[in-house]
Amino acid sequence: MFALGLIIADHRYERLERVRVVLSVLTDPLHFAVDAPTRAIRATQERLVRESQLRALNQALRRENLLLKGRLQQFEALEAENMRLRDLLGSSFNVGERVLIAEILAVDLTPARQQVMLNKGANAGVFIGQPVLDANAVMGQVVRVNPSSSVVLLITDSEHALPVEVNRNGLRSIAAGTGVGHDLELLYIPKNADIREGDLLVTSGMGERFPPGYPVARVTVVRQDPDNPFTTVLAEPTARLDRSREVLLVWTLDPRMYPNALTDAERIRARVAP
């Protein structure tokens, strides 16, 4: 009966968030303990790698680095040009982001929810609603912050939706998680919209939560169902949701979006820089 009261309090009034955060101090060690064997196995694997393998890997990484650097030069030129053009138009556009690398803990949270746990929390400046990326694309956003860990809701969870646009032509839509498998569904795409299989979807920044321009997913299925007034469009996330271990936490340094982001960023820089 007390349990029922608790359920209602937690669900309806979200009063218990503080309690949860305080009690997480007790449960966090368990999460880290469960993660420890996986970490140990990984460390051993890393130690047992052959020298020739390491050399090959090193070479491959060097090559990739060169390639990326080459592309980056181009990007810098393009960004400068973009800024100049925007200045001409008189529109303000401020890209500034700071990232922090966090690791996913090898723990399974509630089944049927697509959530993962990170090893960085409020102590590192993580906040609720913060976007989480991996090397390829957007992964999700932070939904719960404990002092030294945080929980991320992945974009494929059935309660998650984010505003996207088609990279090819700027067609805007909302990508909602389906919770089944690893698919996203685009909502409210009219029958005559120009969208094709293979189109890249990027964040549009409309929700002011995810920074604009990050890749999200690639369209895999475009189907016209007679009983659906809209086009059925499914997309597969480009982020490797079930495979990556390191993720990036992003702070958008746009004073318009987050009134206190600059001070936050200052604090984070002080913490991360050394």
Binding site: A3, L4, G5, L6, I7, A9, D10, H11, L16, V19, R20, L23, S24, L26, T27, L30, H31, L109, T110, R113, Q115, R144, V151
Partner: peptide
């Protein structure tokens, strides 16, 4: 509940 992150009390 705390460990799984489910609704507190479930």
């Amino acid at each position: 509940d705390l460990i799984l992150g489910s609704l507190l009390g479930q």
